[in-house]
Write a protein that binds this DNA or RNA. Structure first.
Length: 469
RNA sequence: GGUGCGGUGGCAGAACGGUUAUGCGUGAGCCUGCAAAGCUUAUACAAAGGGGUUCGACUCCCUUCCUCACCUCCA
């Protein structure tokens, strides 16, 4: 598999025959997660699901930053503790991402649970003279890491001349960043240098090295983390280990709205809960995978709607497959399947192009729907297609809602009743049954001599659109 | 100002030095008791601007312009 590496700006080969270790920078837990977080995490979810489907062993570590100024501020605002805030939003995180059908990581380490590792990490950085203590805390000395700037392609002197770096006279260099911040207010921990809390970047170095070792395959996150977060992580980690840190840096583009980054300060956030409520997890996932991961995606109702239409086609495809009862056999099915599989896999293997993988998937959907509509879909063929269809669904993390047995029986009986009315040319009565089913999100397809049903996912945005029509 | 990703038809989005991917949308028709599903067909004469290389460039080179992101917390 080939992946574009941010560090060397070239495609790198990922050996998927061995265990692939992935560290993904997760969220700071001080507020609701939004669709931008969802995109990054869904991209990595599909990546790991694809690799696992190929039999590759994955160790997937995703952190929670649970100590941070924003958490502390939020706690003050709500008159509670930082711990309560972070616990609340970790819980909230899992509600959102379970609903998005994101597979749980191997582990979700938290900064506050790794204070000892963090302190040990800092001790060594001080020992090797890469860090120093001031009256405010412990700082990493950027000048001691000659390759500083290699990830973000920044030049140290240009950064230094930048006017926007906070002025702290106690630091030796304005670029130096905090490993440990002294503080006597909660939350704080004891350290050899005094009470305080860790800086932002150090947790990821300490935890990734602890769980994945000094050199692992993929380190990922949003593009906005390249600088300073990942740049600083490299500086700390490579100073610490004297080894190359991550083999491949993979950065996911931003979700924008009207071309601008979704962010708190602009107030253009779409929370996962909000979008989930209106569109559901399948549409969100399709939306997040609809462009190349490295590029921005512009959030719009239009794009969501396009994915809704496609999802409806996929639902139709699924039910056509499971209801297929014709005796026909299409000789070309095998080659179509093989082509789909190849296109799908090749797209993902080639810098993880989910857009092209989706088009391979929807090509199959269209083919099946066409065969079904023209009464050429044999049950044998359907049985061959179903495993491949489901394989792709699983990798993409899409889920067809299940219908209960009792519901199924009820639907079947209503279809039989409708058939009787149709035979008797009592079309009003027949249509009434169809309408009732429609209200239950069951749609009917009248095939020659046989009516099948399709269970449509209930999607609020779709219902509203239909109502207003 | 620096750095980075880009600028392709109404929208989304690829590949490729020579053949106007593809999907969505839109128009018309077919199918149907009517719908739905599906089909057929039409539609877009697309490549930010200007140079160059070439027999030929959306694709390579130069240049100008522009968007966005990062340079401060940020997925």
């Amino acid at each position: 598999m080939k992946l574009q590496d941010t560090l060397c700006n070239l495609e790198q080969i990922l050996d998927i025959s061995k265990t692939v270790k992935i560290y993904l920078c997760g969220v700071t837990v001080y507020d609701e997660s939004h669709i931008g977080h969802a995109r990054t995490i869904i991209v990595f979810d599909v990546l790991r699901k694809y690799l696992e489907s190929k039999g590759t062993k994955i160790e997937f570590i995703q952190n929670f930053t649970d100590v941070d100024d924003k958490i502390i501020n939020r706690a003050k605002l709500e008159n509670t503790t930082a711990e309560q805030i972070s616990l609340k939003y970790i819980e909230n995180y899992f509600i959102d991402f379970d609903a998005l059908n994101v597979k749980r990581a191997t582990k979700y380490p938290r900064a506050t649970e790794h204070i000892e590792e963090i302190i040990n990490f800092i001790i060594k950085l001080i020992q090797i003279n890469s860090a120093y203590v001031t009256q405010n805390g412990v700082y990493f000395s950027v000048s001691k890491f000659s390759q500083y700037g290699k990830l973000s392609k920044k030049k140290i002197d240009e950064l230094q001349s930048g006017a926007r770096i906070e002025i702290d006279e106690s630091k030796k260099d304005p670029l130096d960043f905090a490993l440990w911040k002294f503080s006597d207010t909660l939350p704080h921990w004891n350290s050899p240098w005094g009470n305080g809390r860790p800086g932002w970047h150090i947790e990821c170095s300490a935890m990734s090295v602890k769980y994945l070792g000094e050199n692992f395959e993929i380190h990922g996150g949003g593009r906005d983390l390249i600088f300073p977060h990942h740049e600083n992580e490299i500086a700390q980690s490579e100073s610490f280990t004297q080894k190359q840190y991550a083999k491949i840096w993979m950065h996911v583009g931003m979700v924008t709205i009207s071309g601008e980054k979704m962010s708190k300060s602009l107030g253009n956030i779409k929370s996962i809960k909000h979008v989930l409520e209106n569109w559901g997890s399948n549409i969100i996932r399709l939306f997040c995978l609809s462009g190349h991961y490295s590029k921005p995606i512009d959030y719009s109702e239009e794009l969501l709607k396009e994915n809704l239409i496609k999802w409806r086609q996929a639902e139709t495809c699924y039910f056509e497959l499971i209801h297929a009862s014709n005796q026909n056999t299409q000789i070309q099915i095998k080659s179509i399947l093989e082509q789909t599989k190849n296109e799908f896999d090749n797209a993902l293997e080639s810098d993880f192009n989910t857009h092209l993988a989706l088009s391979a998937f929807f090509k199959l959907v269209k083919e099946v729907n066409y065969l079904a509509a023209s009464e050429k879909l044999g049950s044998n063929d359907a049985q061959e297609i179903i495993p491949e269809f489901q394989r792709m669904l699983e990798i993409l993390g899409l889920v067809i809602p299940k219908i209960t047995l009792a519901e199924k029986e009820k639907v079947d009986n209503m279809i039989i009743a409708r058939e009787q009315f149709r035979k008797e040319k009592k079309f009003q009565e027949a249509d009434k049954i169809r309408d009732t089913l429609y209200e239950m999100n069951i749609e009917l397809i009248d095939h020659a001599g046989k009516t099948i049903w399709i269970q449509k996912e209930k999607i609020n945005a779709d219902m509203q659109a239909k109502k207003s029509n």
